[in-house]
Design a protein around this nucleic acid. Structure first.
Lengths: 104, 104
DNA sequence: GTAATCAACTTACTTTATGTAAGCAAGTAT
DNA sequence: ATACTTGCTTACATAAAGTAAGTTGATTAC
């Protein structure tokens, strides 16, 4: 390990590399969503989703908002740090459109 | 799971999401490299590196070249499919530069 | 008013992925 | 002959993710 790689890049990758993280962010780029909406739209298990949302909150990428209605409503949305990942995800998307075959 | 996400994007993410994959590609963007160079530059274990390189070869992202010298030299490089991930990685890098703190 | 249902989780347990370390074949260096 | 290097593979241990059931508080259905 001679650590020649930019530590900020490595940190970014270590966040995005965790399974589901990128899809969660991608989904939240559409607007704020509730737990079960994210769960069903990307097919992640509740166990892991709960874990990831906490991680992403800690990283300042996702914000958890509690609306004190009855019943209480909880929504997850991106912070500006999270929103600013859009260009990166857009690039991945356009790469996918150019290079990934549909039939698999 | 109602599968509303673009399947190409999902495929792309499933490739990049595997641990070390993105760092391996990032490293190969510098030019072709040998097994042990990649291993020591990013700190991945040989076991996983071997696995990843095979996956990436299957996906057509990495090319394995055997130079029949003595001793034989084996180099890994990016195909054009692999090279074209550069803009995406560049975007991640610039996000990291703007939003990731060094002191952690 | 009791049963069933939903949201947002958590807990317990199983399976898969990754890490660690050692081993191996072919060659080189001393 | 012995030790060392590259490019791996194998066996085993630990960590992460999947599955399914359970929890709390409130809502609706009958």
């Amino acid at each position: 390990m001679d650590q020649s790689i930019c530590p900020r890049f490595e940190k970014a990758i270590s966040i995005m590399n965790k399974r589901w993280t990128t899809l969660i962010i991608y989904q939240l780029l559409e607007g704020s969503q509730r737990f079960c909406e994210i769960e069903s739209s990307i097919g992640v298990s509740g166990r892991v989703l709960s874990e990831r949302l906490k991680d992403l909150e800690k990283e300042g990428i996702v914000k958890r908002s509690v609306y004190d209605e009855t019943p209480v409503r909880i929504e997850y949305s991106l912070t500006s740090k999270g929103e600013s990942l859009k260009p990166a995800l857009d690039q991945i998307q356009s790469w996918a459109e150019n290079w990934i075959e549909t039939s698999e």
